[in-house]
């Protein structure tokens, strides 16, 4: 997959906004280089205000870059043919709430110039896909947030696009809603679609993405496979929670741990690496303490993310 065609590419993309009465310049994006390949799920990550939405807006032709270039399907953005192969779900979308689910999808189908029969077929398929067949004749204003998000994704898929761009598809949803969206993304991936989505929820991204990039303050700070990014500086740790260890036991265990936090009768031990686990467990057993839990803590995208954000902020 890594060798497949590049479907989305940006080069030194830069965007500044004028804000306020005096037109103060604010830089939202500082020379962004991105590459998304065909068939992958690409996570575009960053804290709020990092410039993710700005980037997506540029790619969708909603705003114009101050400088730099971008291509979709090898053509400069704004090209109508490439827009026809694209599906987009904006962040926290508000839709025409007076339309019913089916009318809503039909409207967007018409905008793509699809024939009536194709639109009818797609409406059925998509409502099925996003699990909204029951909402076919329900007005959008009666939809819940999760339903809106799902019909929004259906809208983005009406033209059977090759590339699906989703802006914060999981934000504001409950855990079940998020799982549904995750499943949906994986299904789309199975169908061979390329998915490019922005998120600040890293857990989801970690589970879904082939590759991610991390954007902080308009700058790209990391880009690559999740495993590569985490592996590069992975530091596994193990958390052990024990009860009734006593001060003797604690003294026994302490040299083997990195950090100990005592809360009443309980103690949280943080171990560095696998090698001392057995030894620690042995000592707990001899101290006749009760083992509550043992959690292997893989270094996650989140750690990487937090580190990167801190580094960036520290620089300033």
């Amino acid at each position: 997959m890594a060798t497949s065609t590049i479907i989305l590419k940006t080069e030194a993309l830069r965007k500044t906004f004028k804000v306020g009465f005096w037109g103060r310049q604010v830089t939202a994006l500082e020379g962004l280089d991105l590459e998304v390949r065909q068939g992958e799920v690409f996570g575009f990550l960053g804290p709020n205000g990092a410039g993710k939405t700005t980037t997506l807006k540029i790619l969708m032709g909603l705003i114009y870059p101050t400088s730099g270039q971008a291509w979709l399907f090898g053509k400069p953005i704004g090209d109508r043919d490439s827009k026809a192969r694209l599906g987009f779900l904006p962040e926290s979308p508000y839709f025409y709430d007076y339309l019913t689910g089916a009318e809503f999808l039909r409207f967007y189908g018409d905008l793509f110039g699809l024939s009536v029969s194709v639109v009818n077929r797609r409406i059925g398929e998509l409502l099925e896909l996003v699990g909204m067949t029951h909402a076919r004749d329900l007005q959008l204003r009666k939809f819940s947030k999760g339903m809106l998000q799902r019909i929004g994704i259906a809208q983005a898929l009406i033209n059977d696009p090759e590339l699906v761009v989703l802006d914060e598809p999981m934000s504001g949803l409950d855990p079940i809603g998020r799982k549904e969206i995750r499943d949906l993304i994986l299904r789309l991936k199975e169908e061979g679609k390329t998915i490019f989505f922005s998120s600040h929820i890293l857990h989801d991204a970690e589970m879904l993405c082939d590759r991610v990039s991390i954007l902080v303050k308009g700058r790209l700070v990391a880009m690559g496979r999740v495993s590569d990014l985490i592996g590069a500086d992975s530091t596994h740790s193990i958390e052990v929670l024990v009860e009734g260890l006593g001060s003797d036991g604690l003294a026994q265990v302490k040299p083997l741990t990195e950090k100990v936090t005592v809360t009443g009768d309980r103690a949280l031990l943080i171990l560095k690496g696998q090698q001392s686990v057995n030894e620690v467990l042995e000592r707990i057993r001899t101290a006749k303490a009760k083992l509550i839990s043992l959690t292997p803590h893989n270094s996650s995208l989140e750690d990487l993310f937090i580190r990167q954000v801190r580094e960036q902020r520290g620089e300033e």
Partner: peptide
């Protein structure tokens, strides 16, 4: 062809 609006 560029991303900018063609000035012409």
């Amino acid at each position: 062809m560029r991303v900018f609006q063609p000035a012409m």
